[in-house]
Simulated scan of single mutants.
Amino acid sequence: MKHIKKKISNIIGELTMFFFSIGATDISLELQDKDEKFILYLRCNYSDAQEAKISKLVKALQCPKGEAIEEHYWGLAGNSEWDVEFTLIGVMVDDFEITYKDNLLKLILVKNK
C-alpha cells in the first residue's frame, strides 16, 4: 500500500507542475481513499494560449494501462519531458475524465488498489 501512495503523490506533483506551466493561479485538489481505489479530483484555471499543452496531456493520458510498464519505468522517469511523465501517468491510472473550457480545467483520475 505504501508503494501505491507514493505513486499517487508523484502523480499529484507532476500535475501540479503542469498546472503551473499553463498559467494556473488557482489550483484545487481532492483525494479520496476508497476501499478499492483512489479518486483524485483536480481543478485549475489556465491562460488562453495553453490549450495545445492541455491537448497533449489528454493524448498522453489516453495510453492503455500497463502494470509492468508502470512498475518498471516510473522510478526511471525522473524529471524528463512532460510528455513522457504524462504517458506514465496514463499507464498508471485506471480511468480518467477531463474537461477544459472557459479557462477552467477539471481532471478526475482513478487508480485501483
Rank of each mutant, 00 (worst) to 15 (best):
T16S: 08
K53Y: 15
I12S: 09
A77W: 15
I98H: 09
S9W: 06
V58N: 10
F19D: 01
S80L: 06
I11Q: 07
Y100H: 13
L76K: 04
H72A: 07
L104D: 11
D26W: 00
E30Q: 09
L57G: 07
K111W: 10
F19L: 06
G23W: 07
N112L: 11
K34F: 11
G23N: 03
K59Q: 15
S21Q: 06
I12G: 03
E81Q: 00
L61N: 01
D35P: 05
D48V: 15
E51R: 12
D33I: 05
E14C: 00
V84K: 15
L76H: 10
C63W: 06
I8L: 10
E30K: 12
I108S: 13
H72L: 12
A68P: 00
L57W: 01
C44R: 05
K65F: 01
Q32L: 13
F18M: 09
D95A: 14
I8N: 09
N45S: 00
T25V: 02
I39E: 14
E36R: 14
I69K: 00
D94K: 03
Y73A: 06
Y46H: 07
E71R: 03
I27M: 04
G75C: 02
Y100N: 08
T87P: 01
K34I: 08
V110K: 13
G78Q: 04
E14H: 02
F38N: 09
D83K: 11
G23T: 07
W74T: 10
R43K: 12
F96E: 07
T87F: 04
N10M: 07
V93W: 10
N112T: 01
Y100R: 11
M17P: 00
I8T: 11
E36W: 14
I89C: 08
A49S: 11
A77Q: 02
K106P: 05
V58H: 04
Q62V: 14
I27Y: 15
K59C: 01
D26N: 13
T99W: 13
S47A: 05
L29K: 06
D33M: 11
F96S: 07
G75I: 13
N79K: 08
I69V: 09
L42E: 10
F38I: 04
V110L: 14
G66M: 05
F19M: 10
N79M: 11
E71Y: 00
E67C: 02
D94A: 05
E30G: 04
L109Y: 12
D33G: 05
E51N: 15
L76M: 04
F20Q: 14
K37Q: 14
D33L: 11
N112C: 08
D83Q: 04
F19A: 06
K101L: 04
V91E: 02
A60K: 02
R43A: 08
Y73R: 09
W82Y: 14
S80W: 15
G78W: 10
K7E: 09
N45D: 13
Q32G: 14
L40C: 15
D33H: 08
D102R: 03
V91K: 09
I27V: 14
T99F: 12
S9T: 15
P64C: 11
L61C: 02
E36D: 08
I54N: 05
E81A: 15
I98D: 05
Q50M: 05
H72W: 11
D83I: 09
Q32H: 01
A77T: 09
M17R: 14
E71N: 11
T99G: 15
K7T: 06
L61E: 08
V58F: 07
K7N: 13
Y41I: 04
N103P: 13
C63I: 07
I39A: 05
A49I: 06
